[in-house]
Design a protein around this nucleic acid. Structure first.
Length: 417
DNA sequence: TCTGGGGTCCTAGGACCC
DNA sequence: TCTGGGGTCCTAGGACCC
Protein backbone atom coordinates (compact mmCIF):
# COMPACT_ATOMS: atom_id res chain seq x y z
CA UNK A 1 0.00 0.00 0.00
CA UNK A 2 1.10 3.55 -0.77
CA UNK A 3 -0.08 6.89 0.57
CA UNK A 4 0.12 10.40 -0.76
CA UNK A 5 -0.09 13.24 1.75
CA UNK A 6 -0.58 16.69 0.31
CA UNK A 7 -1.14 20.09 1.92
CA UNK A 8 -4.34 21.94 1.10
CA UNK A 9 -3.59 25.35 -0.44
CA UNK A 10 -0.05 24.99 0.85
CA UNK A 11 1.36 28.52 0.52
CA UNK A 12 -1.80 30.27 1.66
CA UNK A 13 -2.05 27.88 4.62
CA UNK A 14 1.51 28.75 5.67
CA UNK A 15 0.76 32.46 5.44
CA UNK A 16 -2.03 31.87 7.96
CA UNK A 17 0.17 30.15 10.53
CA UNK A 18 2.01 33.26 11.69
CA UNK A 19 -0.76 35.77 11.05
CA UNK A 20 -3.90 34.90 13.03
CA UNK A 21 -5.63 38.04 11.76
CA UNK A 22 -6.03 36.53 8.28
CA UNK A 23 -7.06 33.00 9.28
CA UNK A 24 -10.72 33.51 8.52
CA UNK A 25 -10.19 35.68 5.48
CA UNK A 26 -9.64 34.73 1.81
CA UNK A 27 -5.89 34.59 1.03
CA UNK A 28 -4.04 34.27 -2.30
CA UNK A 29 -0.31 33.97 -2.97
CA UNK A 30 1.38 35.32 -6.10
CA UNK A 31 4.18 33.82 -8.19
CA UNK A 32 7.64 35.39 -8.32
CA UNK A 33 7.55 38.95 -9.50
CA UNK A 34 3.93 39.12 -8.31
CA UNK A 35 2.91 37.82 -11.75
CA UNK A 36 0.15 35.27 -11.34
CA UNK A 37 -1.96 33.79 -8.58
CA UNK A 38 -0.40 30.44 -7.68
CA UNK A 39 -2.17 29.45 -4.47
CA UNK A 40 -5.57 30.07 -2.92
CA UNK A 41 -6.98 29.14 0.45
CA UNK A 42 -10.34 27.31 0.45
CA UNK A 43 -12.22 30.51 1.34
CA UNK A 44 -10.73 32.31 -1.69
CA UNK A 45 -11.44 29.30 -3.91
CA UNK A 46 -15.08 29.28 -2.88
CA UNK A 47 -15.35 32.94 -3.87
CA UNK A 48 -14.53 31.85 -7.44
CA UNK A 49 -11.09 33.49 -7.64
CA UNK A 50 -9.29 31.88 -10.60
CA UNK A 51 -5.90 30.18 -10.26
CA UNK A 52 -3.00 31.07 -12.63
CA UNK A 53 -4.57 34.34 -13.68
CA UNK A 54 -2.29 37.38 -14.04
CA UNK A 55 -2.56 39.44 -10.89
CA UNK A 56 -3.18 42.72 -12.70
CA UNK A 57 -6.22 41.23 -14.41
CA UNK A 58 -7.96 40.13 -11.21
CA UNK A 59 -6.88 43.00 -8.98
CA UNK A 60 -10.37 44.51 -8.93
CA UNK A 61 -11.97 41.16 -8.09
CA UNK A 62 -9.58 40.69 -5.18
CA UNK A 63 -10.30 44.17 -3.88
CA UNK A 64 -14.03 43.60 -4.14
CA UNK A 65 -13.88 40.54 -1.88
CA UNK A 66 -11.30 42.08 0.43
CA UNK A 67 -8.84 39.28 -0.35
CA UNK A 68 -5.46 39.21 1.42
CA UNK A 69 -2.64 39.16 -1.19
CA UNK A 70 0.85 37.85 -0.43
CA UNK A 71 4.06 37.55 -2.48
CA UNK A 72 5.81 34.18 -2.59
CA UNK A 73 7.98 33.72 0.49
CA UNK A 74 9.95 30.60 -0.43
CA UNK A 75 12.31 30.85 2.50
CA UNK A 76 9.38 30.46 4.88
CA UNK A 77 7.58 27.81 2.78
CA UNK A 78 10.66 25.62 2.47
CA UNK A 79 11.19 25.64 6.23
CA UNK A 80 7.59 24.78 7.13
CA UNK A 81 7.54 22.14 4.40
CA UNK A 82 10.54 20.43 5.96
CA UNK A 83 8.87 20.36 9.36
CA UNK A 84 5.75 18.85 7.78
CA UNK A 85 7.76 16.19 5.96
CA UNK A 86 9.51 15.22 9.19
CA UNK A 87 6.17 14.41 10.79
CA UNK A 88 4.95 12.43 7.76
CA UNK A 89 8.18 10.43 7.68
CA UNK A 90 7.48 9.03 11.16
CA UNK A 91 4.47 7.06 9.94
CA UNK A 92 5.98 4.80 7.24
CA UNK A 93 9.14 2.84 6.64
CA UNK A 94 9.93 4.84 3.50
CA UNK A 95 8.96 8.34 2.46
CA UNK A 96 9.63 10.15 -0.78
CA UNK A 97 9.24 13.92 -0.81
CA UNK A 98 7.74 14.52 -4.22
CA UNK A 99 7.38 18.31 -4.08
CA UNK A 100 7.32 21.11 -1.55
CA UNK A 101 3.80 20.18 -0.42
CA UNK A 102 3.41 16.45 -1.03
CA UNK A 103 5.07 13.19 -0.07
CA UNK A 104 4.54 9.53 -0.90
CA UNK A 105 4.73 6.93 1.88
CA UNK A 106 5.50 3.28 1.30
CA UNK A 107 3.66 0.74 3.52
CA UNK A 108 4.79 -2.43 1.78
CA UNK A 109 5.42 -4.40 4.96
CA UNK A 110 2.55 -2.91 6.94
CA UNK A 111 -0.27 -4.75 5.20
CA UNK A 112 -0.69 -7.29 7.96
CA UNK A 113 -0.17 -4.76 10.71
CA UNK A 114 -2.52 -1.96 9.76
CA UNK A 115 -6.11 -3.08 9.34
CA UNK A 116 -7.80 0.29 9.30
CA UNK A 117 -6.15 2.52 6.71
CA UNK A 118 -8.81 5.12 7.07
CA UNK A 119 -8.14 5.44 10.79
CA UNK A 120 -4.38 5.46 10.20
CA UNK A 121 -4.77 8.30 7.70
CA UNK A 122 -6.57 10.33 10.33
CA UNK A 123 -3.80 9.71 12.84
CA UNK A 124 -1.26 11.07 10.31
CA UNK A 125 -3.46 14.00 9.49
CA UNK A 126 -3.99 14.98 13.12
CA UNK A 127 -0.26 14.71 13.89
CA UNK A 128 0.69 17.03 11.03
CA UNK A 129 -1.94 19.52 12.12
CA UNK A 130 -0.98 19.40 15.79
CA UNK A 131 2.76 19.85 15.18
CA UNK A 132 2.87 22.21 12.21
CA UNK A 133 -0.65 23.65 11.81
CA UNK A 134 -0.73 22.51 8.20
CA UNK A 135 -4.00 21.05 6.84
CA UNK A 136 -3.34 17.94 4.73
CA UNK A 137 -5.30 15.37 2.75
CA UNK A 138 -4.22 11.71 2.78
CA UNK A 139 -4.95 9.17 0.03
CA UNK A 140 -4.18 5.43 0.12
CA UNK A 141 -3.91 3.11 -2.87
CA UNK A 142 -2.10 -0.01 -4.11
CA UNK A 143 -0.18 1.98 -6.77
CA UNK A 144 1.27 5.48 -6.78
CA UNK A 145 -1.29 6.65 -9.35
CA UNK A 146 -4.17 5.28 -7.26
CA UNK A 147 -2.74 6.90 -4.12
CA UNK A 148 -2.69 10.16 -6.06
CA UNK A 149 -6.29 9.60 -7.12
CA UNK A 150 -7.35 8.83 -3.56
CA UNK A 151 -5.63 11.99 -2.36
CA UNK A 152 -7.52 13.96 -4.98
CA UNK A 153 -10.70 12.34 -3.68
CA UNK A 154 -9.82 13.24 -0.10
CA UNK A 155 -10.16 16.88 -1.05
CA UNK A 156 -12.80 16.89 -3.75
CA UNK A 157 -15.35 14.22 -2.91
CA UNK A 158 -18.39 15.60 -1.10
CA UNK A 159 -18.50 12.73 1.41
CA UNK A 160 -14.80 12.75 2.31
CA UNK A 161 -13.20 14.27 5.40
CA UNK A 162 -9.57 14.51 4.38
CA UNK A 163 -8.79 10.80 4.08
CA UNK A 164 -9.63 8.48 1.18
CA UNK A 165 -8.74 4.80 0.72
CA UNK A 166 -8.73 2.67 -2.43
CA UNK A 167 -8.45 -0.93 -1.28
CA UNK A 168 -11.16 -2.82 -3.17
CA UNK A 169 -13.11 -2.75 -6.42
CA UNK A 170 -15.95 -0.78 -4.91
CA UNK A 171 -13.77 2.07 -3.59
CA UNK A 172 -11.72 2.13 -6.79
CA UNK A 173 -14.78 2.57 -8.97
CA UNK A 174 -16.40 4.99 -6.54
CA UNK A 175 -13.41 7.36 -6.61
CA UNK A 176 -12.27 6.98 -10.24
CA UNK A 177 -15.73 7.46 -11.71
CA UNK A 178 -16.02 10.81 -9.97
CA UNK A 179 -12.60 11.99 -11.11
CA UNK A 180 -12.18 14.02 -14.28
CA UNK A 181 -9.75 12.72 -16.87
CA UNK A 182 -7.33 15.63 -16.74
CA UNK A 183 -6.93 15.23 -12.98
CA UNK A 184 -5.33 11.82 -13.47
CA UNK A 185 -1.58 11.85 -12.77
CA UNK A 186 0.17 11.75 -16.15
CA UNK A 187 -2.77 12.98 -18.21
CA UNK A 188 -2.30 16.63 -19.11
CA UNK A 189 -4.11 19.11 -21.28
CA UNK A 190 -3.22 17.68 -24.69
CA UNK A 191 -3.86 14.07 -23.83
CA UNK A 192 -7.17 14.74 -22.15
CA UNK A 193 -8.31 16.66 -25.24
CA UNK A 194 -7.45 13.66 -27.39
CA UNK A 195 -9.06 11.19 -25.03
CA UNK A 196 -12.24 13.17 -24.67
CA UNK A 197 -12.66 13.03 -28.45
CA UNK A 198 -12.74 9.27 -28.01
CA UNK A 199 -15.64 9.71 -25.62
CA UNK A 200 -13.70 9.24 -22.38
CA UNK A 201 -14.69 11.54 -19.54
CA UNK A 202 -13.53 10.12 -16.22
CA UNK A 203 -10.55 8.31 -14.77
CA UNK A 204 -12.75 5.22 -14.63
CA UNK A 205 -13.40 5.42 -18.42
CA UNK A 206 -9.65 5.54 -19.01
CA UNK A 207 -8.99 2.59 -16.73
CA UNK A 208 -11.37 0.45 -18.83
CA UNK A 209 -9.29 0.90 -22.01
CA UNK A 210 -6.97 -1.73 -23.40
CA UNK A 211 -3.44 -0.74 -22.30
CA UNK A 212 -1.62 -2.29 -25.28
CA UNK A 213 -3.91 -0.67 -27.84
CA UNK A 214 -3.55 2.71 -26.10
CA UNK A 215 0.21 2.35 -26.13
CA UNK A 216 0.09 1.99 -29.91
CA UNK A 217 -2.11 5.02 -30.30
CA UNK A 218 -0.41 7.25 -27.73
CA UNK A 219 2.69 6.18 -25.83
CA UNK A 220 4.09 3.92 -23.19
CA UNK A 221 3.18 6.57 -20.60
CA UNK A 222 -0.54 6.18 -21.24
CA UNK A 223 -0.20 2.41 -21.08
CA UNK A 224 1.49 2.69 -17.69
CA UNK A 225 -1.14 5.04 -16.37
CA UNK A 226 -3.95 2.65 -17.35
CA UNK A 227 -2.18 -0.26 -15.67
CA UNK A 228 -1.59 1.78 -12.55
CA UNK A 229 -5.26 2.77 -12.42
CA UNK A 230 -6.07 -0.94 -12.47
CA UNK A 231 -3.82 -1.65 -9.52
CA UNK A 232 -0.86 -2.98 -11.54
CA UNK A 233 2.25 -1.14 -10.30
CA UNK A 234 4.46 0.35 -13.04
CA UNK A 235 5.96 3.32 -11.27
CA UNK A 236 8.44 3.31 -8.42
CA UNK A 237 10.72 5.79 -6.79
CA UNK A 238 14.37 5.45 -6.00
CA UNK A 239 15.21 4.67 -2.41
CA UNK A 240 18.04 7.16 -2.47
CA UNK A 241 17.65 10.70 -3.59
CA UNK A 242 19.15 10.86 -7.06
CA UNK A 243 21.29 13.68 -8.29
CA UNK A 244 19.68 16.25 -10.54
CA UNK A 245 20.44 15.80 -14.23
CA UNK A 246 19.97 19.48 -14.99
CA UNK A 247 20.14 22.56 -12.81
CA UNK A 248 18.56 25.84 -13.89
CA UNK A 249 18.38 29.28 -12.40
CA UNK A 250 16.22 31.80 -14.21
CA UNK A 251 14.01 34.73 -13.29
CA UNK A 252 11.95 37.35 -14.94
CA UNK A 253 12.90 40.90 -14.00
CA UNK A 254 11.01 43.16 -11.66
CA UNK A 255 12.13 45.99 -13.89
CA UNK A 256 13.32 45.52 -17.48
CA UNK A 257 17.04 45.51 -18.18
CA UNK A 258 18.38 47.60 -21.02
CA UNK A 259 22.00 48.12 -20.10
CA UNK A 260 24.86 45.74 -20.59
CA UNK A 261 26.20 45.96 -17.08
CA UNK A 262 22.91 44.89 -15.50
CA UNK A 263 22.42 41.95 -17.82
CA UNK A 264 25.89 40.73 -16.95
CA UNK A 265 25.12 41.20 -13.26
CA UNK A 266 21.91 39.16 -13.53
CA UNK A 267 23.60 36.35 -15.46
CA UNK A 268 26.51 36.24 -13.02
CA UNK A 269 24.11 35.90 -10.10
CA UNK A 270 22.33 33.02 -11.90
CA UNK A 271 25.54 31.22 -12.69
CA UNK A 272 26.54 31.55 -9.02
CA UNK A 273 23.27 29.86 -7.99
CA UNK A 274 23.80 27.04 -10.48
CA UNK A 275 27.41 26.58 -9.34
CA UNK A 276 26.32 26.40 -5.70
CA UNK A 277 23.63 23.80 -6.39
CA UNK A 278 26.00 21.72 -8.51
CA UNK A 279 28.60 21.86 -5.74
CA UNK A 280 26.05 20.86 -3.09
CA UNK A 281 25.08 17.72 -4.97
CA UNK A 282 28.76 17.01 -5.71
CA UNK A 283 28.64 17.27 -9.47
CA UNK A 284 30.82 19.03 -12.02
CA UNK A 285 29.42 21.04 -14.90
CA UNK A 286 30.33 20.02 -18.45
CA UNK A 287 27.96 22.31 -20.33
CA UNK A 288 25.95 25.39 -19.49
CA UNK A 289 23.37 27.27 -21.50
CA UNK A 290 23.26 31.03 -20.99
CA UNK A 291 20.11 32.72 -22.23
CA UNK A 292 18.30 36.05 -22.25
CA UNK A 293 15.08 37.24 -23.86
CA UNK A 294 12.49 39.97 -23.98
CA UNK A 295 8.90 39.16 -22.96
CA UNK A 296 6.84 36.83 -25.19
CA UNK A 297 4.07 39.40 -24.78
CA UNK A 298 6.21 42.03 -26.49
CA UNK A 299 5.53 42.98 -30.08
CA UNK A 300 9.00 41.89 -31.15
CA UNK A 301 10.23 38.89 -29.23
CA UNK A 302 14.01 38.69 -28.89
CA UNK A 303 15.53 35.45 -27.67
CA UNK A 304 19.09 34.25 -27.67
CA UNK A 305 21.00 31.41 -26.08
CA UNK A 306 24.69 30.48 -25.94
CA UNK A 307 26.22 27.18 -24.84
CA UNK A 308 29.61 26.93 -23.12
CA UNK A 309 31.41 23.62 -22.67
CA UNK A 310 34.04 22.45 -20.16
CA UNK A 311 35.32 19.08 -21.42
CA UNK A 312 36.92 18.18 -18.09
CA UNK A 313 34.01 19.44 -16.00
CA UNK A 314 34.18 22.30 -13.52
CA UNK A 315 32.43 23.87 -10.57
CA UNK A 316 34.82 26.79 -10.39
CA UNK A 317 32.84 30.00 -10.31
CA UNK A 318 35.62 32.07 -11.86
CA UNK A 319 35.80 29.74 -14.87
CA UNK A 320 32.04 29.84 -15.26
CA UNK A 321 31.92 33.63 -14.98
CA UNK A 322 34.42 33.96 -17.80
CA UNK A 323 31.90 32.20 -20.03
CA UNK A 324 29.33 34.81 -19.07
CA UNK A 325 31.70 37.53 -20.26
CA UNK A 326 32.14 35.74 -23.59
CA UNK A 327 28.43 35.03 -23.98
CA UNK A 328 27.57 38.68 -23.37
CA UNK A 329 29.06 39.53 -26.76
CA UNK A 330 26.43 37.42 -28.45
CA UNK A 331 23.51 37.92 -26.07
CA UNK A 332 23.51 41.66 -25.65
CA UNK A 333 21.85 43.89 -28.21
CA UNK A 334 21.39 47.55 -27.65
CA UNK A 335 17.75 48.58 -27.52
CA UNK A 336 16.36 45.25 -26.31
CA UNK A 337 14.24 45.35 -23.15
CA UNK A 338 15.39 42.21 -21.42
CA UNK A 339 12.59 40.61 -19.43
CA UNK A 340 14.10 37.29 -18.57
CA UNK A 341 17.57 35.82 -18.20
CA UNK A 342 19.05 32.64 -16.84
CA UNK A 343 21.67 29.95 -16.77
CA UNK A 344 21.21 26.19 -16.92
CA UNK A 345 23.73 23.42 -16.36
CA UNK A 346 22.61 20.98 -19.05
CA UNK A 347 25.30 18.37 -18.62
CA UNK A 348 26.57 17.26 -15.23
CA UNK A 349 29.01 14.57 -14.12
CA UNK A 350 29.78 13.03 -10.77
CA UNK A 351 32.51 15.06 -9.06
CA UNK A 352 33.79 12.10 -7.09
CA UNK A 353 34.95 10.33 -10.27
CA UNK A 354 36.99 12.78 -12.31
CA UNK A 355 38.21 12.06 -15.81
CA UNK A 356 41.45 14.03 -16.27
CA UNK A 357 42.04 15.90 -19.49
CA UNK A 358 45.60 16.42 -20.77
CA UNK A 359 44.76 19.69 -22.47
CA UNK A 360 42.66 21.45 -19.86
CA UNK A 361 43.99 23.12 -16.73
CA UNK A 362 43.13 21.29 -13.54
CA UNK A 363 40.74 23.06 -11.17
CA UNK A 364 41.91 23.69 -7.67
CA UNK A 365 38.93 22.52 -5.62
CA UNK A 366 40.28 24.13 -2.45
CA UNK A 367 39.27 27.61 -3.58
CA UNK A 368 35.78 26.48 -4.56
CA UNK A 369 35.35 24.65 -1.27
CA UNK A 370 36.46 27.69 0.72
CA UNK A 371 34.13 29.93 -1.23
CA UNK A 372 31.06 27.78 -0.49
CA UNK A 373 32.15 27.18 3.06
CA UNK A 374 32.38 30.89 3.83
CA UNK A 375 29.04 31.63 2.21
CA UNK A 376 27.44 28.80 4.11
CA UNK A 377 28.80 29.98 7.44
CA UNK A 378 28.27 33.72 7.07
CA UNK A 379 25.29 33.83 4.73
CA UNK A 380 24.87 33.85 0.98
CA UNK A 381 26.47 36.79 -0.77
CA UNK A 382 29.32 37.18 1.70
CA UNK A 383 31.65 36.29 -1.16
CA UNK A 384 30.69 36.89 -4.77
CA UNK A 385 32.13 37.50 -8.20
CA UNK A 386 32.80 41.18 -8.80
CA UNK A 387 30.39 41.57 -11.69
CA UNK A 388 27.54 40.45 -9.44
CA UNK A 389 28.14 43.22 -6.91
CA UNK A 390 26.10 46.39 -6.74
CA UNK A 391 22.42 47.20 -6.39
CA UNK A 392 20.16 44.86 -8.29
CA UNK A 393 17.61 47.27 -9.64
CA UNK A 394 16.07 44.51 -11.76
CA UNK A 395 15.44 42.11 -8.87
CA UNK A 396 11.97 40.69 -8.64
CA UNK A 397 8.99 42.55 -7.36
CA UNK A 398 7.66 41.27 -4.06
CA UNK A 399 5.39 43.95 -2.79
CA UNK A 400 3.42 41.82 -0.35
CA UNK A 401 6.11 39.77 1.31
CA UNK A 402 5.42 38.36 4.76
CA UNK A 403 8.14 37.97 7.42
CA UNK A 404 10.47 34.96 7.24
CA UNK A 405 9.38 34.02 10.74
CA UNK A 406 11.33 30.81 11.21
CA UNK A 407 14.61 31.52 9.39
CA UNK A 408 15.56 35.14 10.26
CA UNK A 409 16.20 36.44 13.74
CA UNK A 410 14.98 39.86 12.66
CA UNK A 411 11.64 38.39 11.54
CA UNK A 412 10.83 36.38 14.62
CA UNK A 413 7.17 36.79 15.64
CA UNK A 414 6.46 39.03 18.63
CA UNK A 415 3.47 38.62 20.93
CA UNK A 416 2.16 41.75 22.58
CA UNK A 417 0.46 41.10 25.91
C1' DT B 1 16.45 -8.65 -60.76
C1' DC B 2 17.85 -9.07 -56.20
C1' DT B 3 20.94 -4.32 -52.05
C1' DG B 4 21.04 -6.84 -44.23
C1' DG B 5 20.21 -6.54 -39.65
C1' DG B 6 21.37 -5.16 -35.49
C1' DG B 7 22.82 -1.72 -32.61
C1' DT B 8 24.34 3.11 -30.13
C1' DC B 9 24.44 7.96 -29.44
C1' DC B 10 22.87 12.53 -30.04
C1' DT B 11 19.50 16.23 -30.71
C1' DA B 12 15.19 18.68 -30.98
C1' DG B 13 10.75 18.99 -29.73
C1' DG B 14 6.76 17.82 -27.20
C1' DA B 15 4.24 16.52 -23.22
C1' DC B 16 3.95 15.98 -18.61
C1' DC B 17 4.72 17.12 -13.39
C1' DC B 18 4.69 20.53 -9.25
C1' DT C 1 2.40 49.25 -17.01
C1' DC C 2 1.85 44.34 -15.19
C1' DT C 3 1.77 37.35 -17.41
C1' DG C 4 6.48 31.84 -12.58
C1' DG C 5 10.42 28.77 -12.20
C1' DG C 6 11.83 24.91 -11.92
C1' DG C 7 12.27 19.75 -13.50
C1' DT C 8 11.70 14.70 -16.07
C1' DC C 9 10.78 11.46 -19.66
C1' DC C 10 9.61 9.86 -24.35
C1' DT C 11 9.78 9.85 -29.40
C1' DA C 12 11.47 10.44 -33.93
C1' DG C 13 15.03 10.96 -36.97
C1' DG C 14 19.78 11.25 -38.34
C1' DA C 15 24.52 9.78 -38.15
C1' DC C 16 27.34 6.35 -37.31
C1' DC C 17 29.23 1.49 -36.04
C1' DC C 18 30.12 -3.58 -37.49
Amino acid sequence: MFALTDATGCYSAIEKIFDPSIRHRPVVVLTNNDGNICALCPIARDLGIPKFEPYFKVKHLLAKHNVVVRSSNYELYADISQKMMNVIARYAQNTYVYSIDEAFSDFNNYDNVIKDWYGYGHIMRRAVWKETRMPVGVGFGPTLTLAKAANHGSKKLPDSDGVCVINDEYSRKHILSQMKLDHVWGIGRKLSQHLSLMGLKTAWDLSCQNPKAMRKQFSVLVERTINELNGVPCLAWDDVKTQKKEIFSTRSMGKRITCRHQLRQALTSHVATVARKAFEQRTLIKKIAIFASSSPHDEIFYKKSVVAAYPAGTNNLATLSESIELAMKELYREGVNYYRAGVGAIELVDATIIQQDMFSPVDTPVITECYHDINKRFGRGTLMIGSEAGTKTWSMRREFLSPRSTTRWSDIPKINC
